[in-house]
Amino acid sequence: MGKVTSVPHVERSNDRSGRSLPNSNAIEKKVNKKAGKREHHLWMKRDSAGSGQKALNLVRIVSELPNDKETIYGALDKWTAWETEFPLISAAKALQILRKRNQWLRLIIVAKWLLSKGQGLTMGTYDTLLLAFDMDQRVDEAESLWNRILLMHTRSVSKRLFSRMISLYDHHHMPDKIIEVFADMEELGVKPDEDTVRRVEHAFQKLGEEDKQKLVLKKYRSKWKYIHFKGERVRVRTDAWDG
């Protein structure tokens, strides 16, 4: 004999025509179950909105303080004092707000505080901090951070960070340093984007190494590029257009 599968019993009642109707208690349970899911979803939305408000509060706190590391660190410690979990999302949002407002000094202090707590050790945080060092003319500190990144994340350093560091050295007219970073990039097999290729090419040109400049262009320059011709975006071969 085949196996009999048990079916949960649902109480039913009959209407006037004799048709069987499910018990109202069963329907009520289904409705309550759906309502529970919806309530959880709304809770998640409220939590997300709360992190944004905390971020704005953090920005307000550090913006009103003097340019003193210890003072700001103390205020940041108070900001997290009553949190059961470290408010990392709020802190990350605060960094982005400070970045948009070009408040580089405050951004540097908050980011350093985050790292000192063992929090925010991500490529995004590193990228933001390197940019802030660049904008605040702190090349030495950028180099120190970069060396730490290479030491800790040798095989996982992103193209974005390599590009950021090369951009920083280009901004401060340091072609020899550009070549050093590019050498690490090649050794780790990270393919440069077009902006990075252009900066490396110019660095070799400034150093008088035209042969290496040509090799970089031959290896990495895109064969195609887009131009606007008679109001349309047209793809053309790079070498044909340059010729």
Rank of each mutant, 00 (worst) to 15 (best):
K37H: 11
A81F: 12
F162C: 05
M44E: 10
K218W: 01
L129A: 06
L105C: 09
L105V: 10
A55R: 06
Y220L: 07
H9W: 02
E187T: 15
T71Y: 08
D184T: 06
S6W: 01
W82N: 07
M174Y: 13
E11D: 06
G2V: 05
K34W: 10
N25S: 06
R12L: 01
S167Y: 03
D193I: 13
E141G: 03
R148E: 00
L145V: 01
F204N: 02
A240R: 07
P175D: 01
M174G: 07
L21Y: 07
E210T: 10
K30P: 08
S167T: 09
I109C: 08
H202Q: 14
S144M: 12
H173F: 14
K225L: 03
H153I: 15
S156M: 06
Q213Y: 04
I227E: 04
L105P: 01
K206S: 04
F204C: 09
K218F: 01
H41Q: 14
H173L: 12
E64Q: 13
G50Q: 11
P175N: 06
P192W: 12
V200T: 08
E210C: 11
N67K: 03
K159M: 10
L98T: 00
G74E: 07
E232Q: 07
R46C: 09
W224F: 13
D170I: 10
V110H: 00
N14H: 04
G124I: 03
L129V: 11
A49K: 08
A91D: 05
R233I: 05
I27M: 02
S24Q: 08
T5M: 04
S158G: 12
G124Y: 00
V216H: 06
H41V: 15
S158M: 13
K117Q: 08
L98W: 00
W224K: 09
V234I: 02
T71M: 10
D239G: 04
G243H: 10
D184F: 02
T84S: 03
Q96F: 11
K30H: 08
N25Q: 09
S63E: 06
G36P: 12
G189H: 06
I109Y: 04
S163P: 15
F162W: 06
R221P: 12
F162H: 08
D184P: 11
D239P: 04
L215K: 03
A94N: 15
V62M: 13
L121I: 10
A75V: 13
S222C: 03
P66H: 09
V197W: 07
D195G: 07
L42S: 03
V236A: 04
A35L: 13
H202I: 14
T84A: 04
L58Q: 14
I227A: 09
W146Q: 00
K78Y: 11
D184V: 03
A142V: 01
E232T: 07
V181M: 07
L131Q: 00
T84H: 01
T238W: 01
E232H: 09
V181K: 02
E209W: 09
L150E: 05
H172V: 11
I166K: 07
S222P: 04
E11L: 12
F162P: 02
K214D: 00
Q53G: 10
T122E: 06
K230H: 08
R16Y: 15
F229V: 07
A183M: 09
V110K: 00
N23Q: 05
E70L: 13
E209Q: 11
D47H: 12
A55N: 05
S17F: 15
G74S: 11
R138S: 01
V10H: 12
N23I: 15
K69P: 11
V110D: 00
W82L: 01
D211N: 02
P175K: 12
